[in-house]
């Protein structure tokens, strides 16, 4: 019998008053594996990561950390158990040097009492070597972090979480605001983190980002699970089709056709794009944002 998964949820539900935010959700995060949580806006992705990171508590079902049933009462407790969350804003201060950002809030000091001072050399060195281990070769860790690209900043945030003892890394839509190339860079670091033995929870609405790096895929829709698959149980096409929600897309193109003229043209375009890219990308293309249902 192998070690229990780092994180495991079984039939977890979460209610906000009468709103069912999540119902009967099950998945697991193994060490050295990437679990992708896919879903559109309002699907319950953020509620799920908030349960993982201790911001919210589940109302039903079971949440196990390394086999032990838990209810995390605060982000601090999650951190103490090695669950680190990298939010979209990354929690970096743009004008501060990279190394100061890396150690912000957990600075290394030497000396005692009022003479305690920053161990600048050690922090510079650690920052440089930790980033190097993630595959980022910075010439100068003294440059303001705002001078790095979006993808690189994301990676500094990841490296920071790894250095401060994360066993599970939760990434909230790390590729959402990035261009194709930068997103590729971030995906590379997700694999890097996996190879260092971490369990990664990768939240995204893009199956094309999820499929190449994921070992397990959990699809959310309106607070319910559409399925929880290991990589060998699902193909990229099936994943994309599930995300697209085929029937709905068809309905949408019918509606647009009824509009006639330009809308009909848009509907044709939508079908074409949908066939190529998968519907979620197409919906974005048209500026439609799923059900838009937020807790």
């Amino acid at each position: 019998m192998s070690a229990p998964p780092l994180l495991e949820i079984e039939r977890v539900s979460k209610f906000f008053g009468s709103v069912i935010a999540l119902q009967d959700i099950s998945t697991k995060v193994e060490a050295a594996a990437v679990t992708c949580v896919l879903g559109d806006n309002g699907a319950g992705k953020s509620t799920l990561i908030k349960i993982f990171s201790g911001v919210h508590q589940h109302d039903a079902g079971e949440f196990r950390v390394e086999g032990e049933p838990v209810r995390l009462s605060s982000p601090r407790e999650a951190l103490d158990r090695g669950i680190a969350t990298v939010y979209q804003d990354l929690a970096v201060v743009r004008l501060m040097p990279v190394w100061r950002n890396f150690f912000l809030g957990s600075e290394i000091t030497k000396g005692k009492g009022p003479f305690a001072r920053l161990d600048v050399e050690a922090m510079r060195k650690i920052t440089k070597s930790e980033l190097l281990a993630m595959g980022i070769d910075l010439r100068d860790v003294d440059q303001p972090i705002g001078t790095l690209s979006g993808g690189e900043r994301q990676c500094v945030a990841i490296a920071r979480a790894v250095y401060f003892g994360a066993k599970v890394l939760i990434l909230d839509e790390p590729t959402a605001a990035l261009g194709v190339k930068q997103a590729g860079v971030v995906l590379k670091y997700i694999i890097q983190a996996r190879e260092r033995g971490l369990g990664v929870v990768f939240i995204t609405h893009n199956p094309h980002h999820a499929y190449p790096v994921g070992d397990r895929f959990m699809l959310l829709k309106r607070g319910r699970s559409l399925g929880d698959f290991a990589k060998d149980e699902i193909t990229r096409e099936e994943l994309t089709a599930l995300m697209a929600g085929g029937a709905e897309l068809e309905e949408l193109s019918h509606e647009l056709e009824r509009g006639g003229g330009a809308a009909a043209a848009a509907a044709h375009e939508l079908e074409a794009v949908g066939a190529q890219l998968g519907a979620s990308a197409a919906e974005e293309h048209l500026g439609l944002s799923g059900e838009g249902q937020e807790k």
Binding site: V93, R94, L95, G105, S106, L118
Partner: peptide, 20 residues
């Protein structure tokens, strides 16, 4: 010092500073 680091961070981005 740590306090100096916190001063820069609090002024630069108070939300990010609190989050870490």
């Amino acid at each position: 010092t740590r306090f100096g680091n916190w001063t820069f961070a609090t002024g630069g981005d108070p939300v990010a500073a609190r989050n870490v």
